[in-house]
Every structure is written in structure tokens, then in C-alpha cells.
Design a protein around this nucleic acid. Sequence first.
DNA 1: ACTCCACCGGAATACTTGGCGT
DNA 2: ACGCCAAGTATTCCGGTGGAGT
Length: 427
Amino acid sequence: MPGESDSSLGLFQKYLANRNIFKNREVIRHSYRPQVLPHRKPQINTIAGILAPALKKETPSNILIYGKTGTGKTASVNFVGSELEKAGGEMGLFCRVVHLNCQVIDTQYRVLAQIAKCIEDIEGKPSDKAKINIPFTGWPTDQVYSELKNMLDETKGVLIIVLDEIDKLVKKSGDETLYNLTRINSDLINAKVSIIGISNDLRFTDFLDPRVLSSLSEEELVFPPYNAPQLCDILEQRAGMAFLEGVLEEGVIPLCAALAAQEHGDARRALDLLRVSGELAERENTGKVSERHVKMAQEKIEADSMVECISTLPTQSKAVLYAMLLLDQMGKKIFTSGEVVQVYRELAQAVDLDILTPRRITDLISELNMLGVISTRVVSRGRYGRTKEISFDTNVKQISGVITTDPRLKEESLMGMDINHLRGLFR
DNA sequence: ACTCCACCGGAATACTTGGCGT
DNA sequence: ACGCCAAGTATTCCGGTGGAGT
């Protein structure tokens, strides 16, 4: 693209050329699906091998895929799926893949309805007698099931159902859905169905009926986390498309890879790091992404996720957190649960919240601890009992910024609170 | 209508060491 | 000097409740 469009770009050219970091930012969003998936050849080949019978109008084995987030499970399956559809199309077969994210579609009804809808969309053109639209709600589930069965049979092809985040589905609505889906084959005459389950949770099979499990996991596949060099390759591959020539300094990609590898080998995390680094550099107008930016990006991502985490907390938890903030501001960097309870009482009264018992508060405190907002340590002080020592280990300002976003904990609502009284209490 | 889950609090029990009694 | 006790929560277990989903 450089060169020929000079005429219209001329005016802006120098600004674009000067300071921009990105060539195409979309490429390093994790929603972007690259053509090539580095270091996933074996898995892709395995999946392809398992699904290949579909092209001979046979039923492929069901597959269960495990792996942590950001290990390329979904991307690999999608890749194989679209290749399969392509191949099927060339051979004049009806061979389709439908992808369902069970985090969103998490009931039996919605799963069935969504599959039906996908099939409808795919072969929309033949003027079927009465376009049977399955409503979002209203029908009994078994009617949807039999309707789906009929639709499938008419296609006379092979359908591959990908259930992404299948563990969420099982946790929310049990294994009945899966049971029905696995036995749908025996009800079909002309068509074949095969299921690919994708799970983040290795132990989710505990919740499954053994019959469902054995049928679902005819083949099992594990996606190991990426290690640092592999992450490097992934980043390299995309960085070439995403960034302008020479804006990335030497150590940037290795650093992103190393940081993400420490996490869980999460490719998404690595890409986020790289993208945010780029965005930070862009904002600075330096025209270069350096390792410093990566470190800033790391902090920013962490901070963002903490903000996200805190802002979705229930009000009571926020109140407890606020109480701890007040203690911190009063100069007590380390405090005990007893003190938190005292401050919390005042606070809750002032903002007209139900006052929870100490019992509950300790629960909330440990919850906050697990979220990593605070850190706690149980200590025994001999004659003076046993307590939890609590302290903040992250930026207090940010936390307080988020907390006061809650309508019930706005500054104004705290007017009724006697801070000085509290101050006197803790010296 | 019924089930399930998140939230809540009461009671009992666990835990640990500085103080106090001897 | 030594050892048991007690303070003050933590932690566990459990039962109740209201609201959301089916």
C-alpha cells in the first residue's frame, strides 16, 4: 500500500509515518485468528485425523479437549473446522461445524435452539415448505429436540458440534444436555453428528455420568501451555503484521513471552502485553516500543483486572474494603480483623447498610485476600489472642478510586461518619 | 411450584503464646 | 523456672432465608 495512494494521504502522511506504532492493531487482539498456528501442528493433525471420516460420510469420534486458557484450543478447532468445511464443500458433501460458547449458551434449551438456528442459517436457501423458526423460548425442550433431529436428518450430512467451555455448561445445567446430544446419533437415519468438547477444567469429568463420559471422550487431547520460546514465535509472527518496521526494540518480544510464560503459558496474555505496550508507546509518541513499556503494560493490565475485579464486588465487600482503606489512611499500615470490624460498623451505619456480624466479615476478608486485593496473615499474640493481620500490598489510591464509584459509598454518604472519633480509637 | 445457590449468622471447636500462678 | 490458662479470633459445621432460574 505504500506509494500509490500518496495523493490523498499526502497531507497526513507525515503524521502517520512519524509517530505511529501500529500497522494493523487488529492482528494482536486475541480475537484475531491467524492463518498459521505455531507449535500446534501435532494437535491440529490429530484433530484432522479424527474428523477426516466425516468426508467419507462416516461419523467421526467425539473428542474431548483439555487445556488452560490461551493455549490455542479454540483456534485450532476452528482452523480444522473451517478446513473441513472447505474440503467437504469441494466434494459436494454437507459437512458443517457449529461452534457454541457454553459460557453464554448455558442451558439445554438454548444449546439445542442455537444448533437448530445455525443449521437453518447454513442451508437457508432451499425454499422449505414452512420455515420452522424455533422461538427463543416457549417450546418444550423435547419438541425442540425432535425438531432439530428432523432438520438434521434432512441435511443428510455430517455435523460437528463444538462445545466451547463445556465445563461451564456442565456446572450450570448438568450433563443431561450432553447425554441427549450423544444419543442423538441413534435417532438419526440420514445424518451424523459428532461432538467436540473443549474444557479449561481438567477435573470437570467428575461431574459427568460415566456413560456420557465414555461416549464423549472417545478421543482425548491435551493442549499443553506454551513455553517462552514458543510464545516468542507466536508474537514474532503477528508482530510483523501488527507493527510498523523497526518500532519494536530488541528485547520486547522475549520479555512479553517470558512474562506470559510465568503466568500460565497463556498466549492471550502475551498478546495483550504486546498490544498494551504498543498502545502505551503510541501515547508517548516516542515511536519505539521498549522494555520499559512492557513493564508498564504488565502493571496496567494487572491494575485493570484489579479494578474490574473490585468494581464487581458486592457492596458489603466494598464496605469492608473501604473500612480497611480508612485504617490505612489513618496511618495504620497493618491492622487486625477486630479493628476492621470496628471501623466497618461505623461505616455501615453511616451509609445505612445492614451491619454484618464479625463472623461474616472474616469471610469477606479472606475472600478479598484470595482475590489478591489485600494480604493477610494469621498471628497469635499470646495473651492477646489470635488475629489476622491485614495489609495492602498494592496501590491504595487505585483501590479507593474504584470503591468510591459505588453509589452507596460515595464521599457524600460518609458525611455522617465521625472520622475523628475513629482516629481517636486507633492510636 | 420447586430447586438450587448465594448469603448470612449461631454455636462449637481450634489455635497459639504471653502472663500468671506456683 | 516451668507449665497451664486465657484471650481473642480463626475456622468449621450447619441450618435458615430470600431470590433467581426452570
